[in-house]
Amino acid sequence: MFTLNDYRIFGLNIRSKIVLPEAYEIHGIISEFDVEIELNPPQEDVQDQFTTGNYRFENGRFLFHVPETACYSITSGARISVTPYPGADEAKIRLFLLGTCMGVLLMQRGILPLHGSAVVIDGKVFAIVGESGAGKSTLAAAFAHAGYPLMTDDVIAVSLSDDSAAAAVYPSYPQQKLWEESIEQLGLLSHNYSSIYQRVNKYAVPIRSQFCREPLPLAGVVELIKASEPEPSIKAYNRFEGLHVLNVHTYRSSLLHLLNLQQWQFQSIARLASELPVYQLRRPADGFSAFNLMDRVVGLANKREVVNS
């Protein structure tokens, strides 16, 4: 028999047949759910319907396949159906459920997912985007360590549904992904944390106490870049550069054409780039400077930092 578990992720009430220890549980009675997550019995041959590649879109359903793990189907931003392989690792099933599946679900609901971390400074959200290894999570960890609430550490859900209202960010789930090196530099001890599946030396850090649970307005986007200069520097992008930054850091942007949502995504990022400041923050490759970088971002938020474009 299945158990039902109720969670709130990205502002959505989710009823799941899969237990999600990462997410906030809803306590109390909810009559309406935005999303249902279904779990089918394990199946040996789930890959048979994927003849070309691991992604398909048909009849409003987005299907994708992760070898040795599961096949996922996402429909109308309201239903996720998971068919695992026999004996598949549960943590790995959840990794793709909370990652790619939720990203596609958000796009189907008209919520723009960006890839990165988001922090709250004086009630306003700053999104931190950047390439893998740029230091997004480490910077977010410095914020959490200094007492600033976090919104997310992987998928930034930006709601633009109301044309007249400011863009808002919805909280994801209270977990941070940190590299071992970063944990040591921040003075946390890595053996206290569980390793995320198949990501050697990357650890899941529970951050419930430092996690924001309400949507808040998005005030700016910071692209973090690992550079060879000895000192960190910051500049404001013009709105066309900002448009490009938002395009590059849209979560799972390679799936937009399959979902037939490229035009919607372009309009969404154009609106964000005209309404919000987008900054470039360059940090030295060597020498740990997360708290220093954090001060620069706080300076931006408080308009203390003087920025040239």
Binding site: R239, F240, L243, H244, N247, H257, Q262, Q263, Q265, F266, Q267, A270, R271, A273, S274
Partner: peptide, 22 residues
């Protein structure tokens, strides 16, 4: 081309080569 507006100006992105146009 993907087409949108920014502050009253028409901006476009070529799907084929990723070039932006204002």
């Amino acid at each position: 081309f993907l087409v949108s507006e920014m502050n009253g100006e028409k901006v476009m992105l070529s799907i084929e080569n990723g070039k932006y146009y204002n």
